[in-house]
Every structure is written in C-alpha cells, then in structure tokens.
C-alpha cells in the first residue's frame, strides 16, 4: 500500500458516499445517470467475487463490501425509491454498445483464461467506460448540479491517483499490470474534458454548464 493508492481509494469512497448522500438528502436523482450506476454495480460485482474465495486484509474486504453495498443502494434509490425523479429521457446512452465490446475484449485479452480472471478483466475494461452514460447525460442536459461535479471529480481523481500508484509500484516493486494500466489511462483520459470544466468553472464558484 502506498499513499497514492490510499488516497485513490479514499477519493473513490468519497465519490460513492457523496453521490449516495446527495440522492438520499435531496430525495432526488435528477441529473444522475442510472445507467452509469448500474455499470458500476456490475463492475464491483464482477471484480469482487474473490471476496468469496480469498481474504487479503480487513481493509480490502471492508472496502469491497462498502463499495458493493453503496453501489447497489444507489441503484435502488434511483430505480425504486426515487424513480419519479429519474430523468430517463436524458439518460439515453446505449450501454449495450459498451458491454458487448468490453465482454468480447475481456475474453480475448486477459492474463489467464479462467472464469474469475475473465470476470476481473471484464470489470477492469467496463470500469474504464462506465462513466460515459453520465458524461453523455450532462452533455445532453447541458448542465450539472455542483454536488454532482464534486462526485465526478472524486470519481475521476481516484483512477488518476491509481496511475501514480502503478508508476510507484513499477519503480519500487518492479510490479505492473498492463491490463489495469491501459484501462486506467483510458478511464482517466475520458475525464480530462470534465476536469478542465471543473477547474475553470466549478472551482471559481460558477455552475457547470456546457454551451448547449
């Protein structure tokens, strides 16, 4: 464990908690893409099946349980409890265009052709594009609530910090996982446009609104 991975995990945890609290407190999921949240629930489910087979550490196990629990709770709030506030018209990204290619790639390019490894690889590839429905929705509505931009910033920062963690681990431990690194680079690049808007607008107190 190094400082970059720790702060990456804390940033990810913050993102998940911010979103859950935003929906719970405002009793509304306006502006939130339910499709992205379903993809994240799939990412955690397929990646953390090793909860059933191996124990790494209390930290590892508890964080995985929290991620899975919060992601399913968020999906439940969006599609069940506060479904009346769900903006289905703007959440129209075709996720099958993500899941099918990612599934195919996971079967073709992986470290080991075993079920757990292919599911893990699928989860890594899916996570790199899981935010697209949310970014697409913001481009369609042309704006995002400030709390949603903080959620997105933490979500994007987490994998950026993981990239630094992988540089650190390569340099100090001689370890690298090309699949995780390439997917992590793609994932972080997808946030660049948002990062620019976040820094130039939200951090200056303005509302994030895209030129419609």
């Amino acid at each position: 464990m190094n400082i970059f991975r720790l702060f990456g995990d804390l940033s990810h945890l913050a993102a998940i908690i911010i979103l859950l609290l935003k929906i719970w407190k405002s009793r509304s999921c306006a502006g939130i893409s339910g499709k992205s949240q379903i993809l994240f629930a799939i990412v955690f489910t397929t990646r953390y099946l090793d909860l059933l087979t191996s124990f790494i550490s209390l930290y590892n196990t508890s964080m995985k349980m929290i991620y899975i629990g919060c992601s399913y709770a968020t999906v439940y709030l969006i599609y069940a409890k506060f479904r009346a506030t769900y903006d289905g018209n703007h959440d129209s990204f075709r996720v099958e265009f993500l899941i099918v290619p990612v599934g195919g790639l996971a079967v073709l390019i992986n470290h080991d052709f075993s079920l757990l490894e292919i599911l893990w690889t699928f989860s890594i590839y899916l996570e790199s594009v899981a935010i697209l429905p949310q970014l697409f929705m913001i481009s369609k509505t042309g704006e995002a609530e400030t709390i949603t931009t903080h959620y997105l910033f933490c979500q994007g920062l987490y994998r950026a910090l993981y990239l630094i963690n992988w540089i650190w681990r390569f340099y100090f431990e001689g370890f690298f996982d090309m699949i995780a690194i390439v997917a992590g680079v793609v994932q972080t690049i997808l946030y660049c446009d948002f990062f620019y808007l976040y820094v130039t607008k939200v951090l200056k107190g303005k509302k994030l609104s895209l030129p419609a």
């Binding site: 790494i56 470290h111 995780a180």
Partner: peptide, 10 residues
C-alpha cells in the same frame, strides 16, 4: 504472474 498481485488492489 504479475496480475495476481494487482488483486490486492480495489
């Protein structure tokens, strides 16, 4: 293999 140790990451 190297990928095993990336399983200790979240």
């Amino acid at each position: 293999t190297d990928s095993q140790s990336s399983k200790d990451e979240l």
